[in-house]
Amino acid sequence: MKEMKRGANVTLTREIPDLRGVVLGVQYNAGMEQVLADNIVVAAILCRGDGDALSDRHFVYFNQLASPDLSVQQLRDVMGEDQDQIEVDLLAAPAEVSRIVIVMYVNEGTAARRTLGRLKSCVIRVLNLDGNAELIRSENLAPVLNLETGLALGELYRHSGGWKFKVLGDGYANGVTALAADYGIRL
């Protein structure tokens, strides 16, 4: 297992040539902030080379549990310590997908005044789909969060015929609205 800092990346398929799929797990601790914990949404965005989502249907979250091609799916039954997990079939990802970004945001409504700055911890993990061995764990991304209501956690991206993973940790002040604008998604 490698613990990675913000901005660090690793070549997954070079280190594991037979890697066919991964599970991206998100762990967070909101402490006593149950309303915050209940309103955190984890999602995946399948992007083209220009950074925009292929389409609005390539935003995988609780109301759209899979990408149109089924290469990326939100898991309903989470295993282990993760609060959310997204499964990615690396071989089935369409050729036009150059990166898959994992994001989280505070859903509006009852949690409108909550921020991710209240999190005690927030980690993204990469697990091998074959056997669920943990390959990568990010550093705790929570300590630098303040008023953010959206966060790009990490991304899988194509590189030299294979796949790499990068820890992002980029915060957004306007939650899902800002994330959608950044990735060209119409809400």
Rank of each mutant, 00 (worst) to 15 (best):
Q73S: 14
G109I: 00
R114C: 13
I100G: 04
R125T: 07
I100L: 12
Q85H: 03
D69W: 04
V97E: 04
V123L: 14
S121W: 04
A95C: 06
V103D: 12
A111S: 07
R125I: 00
G80S: 12
I100R: 08
S71Q: 02
L90D: 05
S98L: 11
N107L: 10
G109S: 04
N107Q: 11
E108H: 07
V103R: 01
L90W: 03
V97L: 06
Y105N: 11
S71L: 02
E108Y: 07
L75H: 00
D84Q: 12
V106A: 08
N107Y: 09
G109R: 03
L116M: 13
V103E: 06
E108M: 09
I102F: 12
V101L: 14
Q85E: 15
D69C: 15
C122F: 01
S98C: 12
D89L: 05
S67F: 08
L75P: 00
V106D: 07
D69H: 12
I100P: 06
A93Q: 09
V106F: 07
R113A: 13
Q85G: 05
E81W: 05
G109Q: 02
D82R: 06
D82Q: 08
K120A: 13
L70H: 15
S98H: 14
L116T: 10
V123P: 02
L119W: 06
R113V: 07
S67G: 12
V78F: 01
L90E: 06
R76P: 01
L90Y: 05
Q74N: 10
I100T: 09
G109M: 01
A112N: 07
G109W: 01
D69M: 04
P68W: 08
G117A: 08
D69N: 11
L116R: 11
Y105C: 10
I124F: 01
M79W: 09
A112H: 08
D84P: 00
Q73P: 05
E96F: 02
P94I: 02
V101T: 13
I102N: 10
R118H: 14
R113P: 00
S67K: 11
V101R: 13
R118P: 00
L75G: 00
I100N: 05
D77Y: 09
I102H: 06
Y105R: 00
V126C: 08
P68H: 13
G109N: 03
V97G: 07
G117D: 03
V88R: 08
E87S: 13
M104Q: 11
R118A: 15
T110C: 05
D84F: 12
V106P: 06
E96N: 15
A93S: 14
T115M: 00
N107E: 09
N107P: 00
L75T: 00
A92T: 02
R76S: 14
S67I: 04
E96Y: 02
R113W: 05
D84E: 14
G117E: 02
G109L: 04
V126K: 05
R114G: 01
D84M: 03
Q83Y: 03
L119M: 06
V101C: 10
G80Q: 11
E81G: 14
V72M: 09
V78L: 02
G80K: 13
A111R: 03
M79G: 11
T110A: 09
K120Q: 15
Q85V: 05
C122A: 15
M79Q: 15
I102E: 06
E87H: 12
C122N: 14
P94F: 01
E96H: 12
P94Y: 04
A92G: 01
R113N: 12
S121K: 13
N107D: 09
A92F: 01
S67N: 11
A112S: 11
R114H: 15
L75D: 00
